[in-house]
Amino acid sequence: MRIACPFCGERDSSEFSYLGDASPKRPNFAVDSPNSPAEIEDAVFDYVYLRANVAGDMREYWYHGGGCRSWLIAERNTVTHEFKSVTAAPGAGAALAGQAGE
């Protein structure tokens, strides 16, 4: 199988490693967060452990460790293994992204 890295082009899937669902957002809690400890723990627990077992299209993290070392977000069908799109994680290419945004 080949995966189209937005930076490198199509590459053999063995160059990539899979992390999983890209939808959970990491909650940020400062050490002096006003939220209750239970609330904080629940939120982080969900982020770490709670995953839907999707049969169909899913947004996933993939790492092009055997290539440009970019983290990527892929839309993949978990049933057919078809990749619908592969885009760069927000910090992959930060020099360019930052420039455009700032």
């Binding site: 990491r26 790492y63 983290w71 994680a89 910090g91």
Partner: peptide, 14 residues
């Protein structure tokens, strides 16, 4: 790989 994840995904602002 973990450090790259932190850099590129978690904290792109750094």
């Amino acid at each position: 790989q973990h450090l790259e994840f932190c850099r590129q995904v978690l904290w792109p602002e750094l």
